[in-house]
């Protein structure tokens, strides 16, 4: 800012710190709870400092298995969720890259019809078409499979539109230069279009990974077996209405573990993510 008098700086920081405290405290408290025994958690008040059962709780959850969800370990849940989130993110990116490529760079009959068909699916989110989709998955025998979890969520009008907009900004001369240089459609896609789209792909990957990671309704419907659950569904199943039945310490551990991978993805891809959002690098 223009004016950096100490009072202003102090107030600004105060507001920021307060904001962070409000946002971060519940997460901290979850962490605290995940390091205490069930008895400590059930006997209020909960201490404000971490307890001594960090290693025991985490190893029990990760490798031992949680009783209320049929003894499945959190490690399995993490693996399932990673497969699903990666599958959705990568699948969506591939499909939308290819469809945007076709729509922008090729002239074929009904091109605009296809574009509008894709566009219209924006208005039909998963929730609207959930029953027919479920029926199709049952008929194909895809309940309790990774395919069943991933495929219905892959088609993405949003990502297709995003790539379409980006491809439209690529100058026609570049396409022509590639043609004169003897690059066919696949070479052009692979050698020129993909490298130019990498920041967009990275940004989209982060968003889609988190989208996939936090899916609730679809995994809830399409998985019955406990060992095919995603972590979000399993968390829900771990919690019983009767407080005494719930292994709260393990629920807290699972919650903590569930937020680690999305945070890792954001932190590791932050540089790419920000660049993808702010500049087009041309």
């Amino acid at each position: 800012m223009i004016d950096n008098s100490p009072i202003r700086t102090f107030i600004a920081h105060l507001v920021l710190v307060l904001g962070i405290l409000i946002v971060a405290f519940p997460i901290y408290y979850t962490f605290v709870a995940s390091t205490h025994s069930l008895q400590t958690i059930l006997r209020p008040p909960l201490p404000l400092l971490p307890g001594d059962r960090f290693v025991e709780n985490y190893s029990e959850a990760l490798f031992g298995g949680v009783g209320r969800i049929g003894g499945v370990s959190v490690a399995t849940l993490l693996f399932n969720t990673t497969v699903v989130a990666l599958g959705i993110a990568i699948g969506k990116i591939i499909i939308s890259l290819l469809s945007a490529y076709a729509i922008v760079f090729f002239r074929f009959p009904l091109r605009m019809t296809f574009f509008w068909l894709i566009f219209i699916t924006l208005m039909l989110p998963v929730e609207v078409r959930i029953l027919p989709t479920y029926k199709v998955m049952v008929d194909f025998g895809l309940i309790d499979t990774y395919t069943g979890l991933i495929v219905p969520l892959i088609a993405s009008a949003t990502a297709t539109l995003l790539f379409r907009q980006f491809f439209l900004t690529i100058p026609g001369e570049l396409v022509e230069a590639a043609r004169v240089d003897g690059a066919g459609p696949w070479r052009f896609f692979w050698d020129i279009l993909l490298p130019l789209s990498r920041t967009n792909i990275a940004a989209l990957f982060v968003i889609l990974f988190i989208y996939g990671w936090t899916q609730y309704l679809w995994p809830l419907l399409v998985t019955n077996r406990n060992d095919m659950n995603t972590i979000v569904i399993a968390l829900r199943k771990m919690i019983s209405f009767a407080d005494a039945d719930t292994e709260w310490h393990l629920v807290m551990v699972t919650s903590m573990l569930a937020i680690v991978p999305p945070i890792l993805v954001v932190v590791l891809m932050q540089r790419w993510f920000v660049r993808g959002l702010v500049d087009t690098e041309k």
């Binding site: 001369e173 230069a177 043609r179 004169v180 003897g182 020129i192 490298p195």
Partner: peptide
């Protein structure tokens, strides 16, 4: 015949260099 097989080379107004 397509541009590749015509054995021509073109210099474009905006150069059209591959930016990456």
């Amino acid at each position: 015949i397509g541009p590749t097989e015509r054995d021509i080379a073109m210099v474009f107004q905006n150069y059209a260099l591959y930016p990456h």
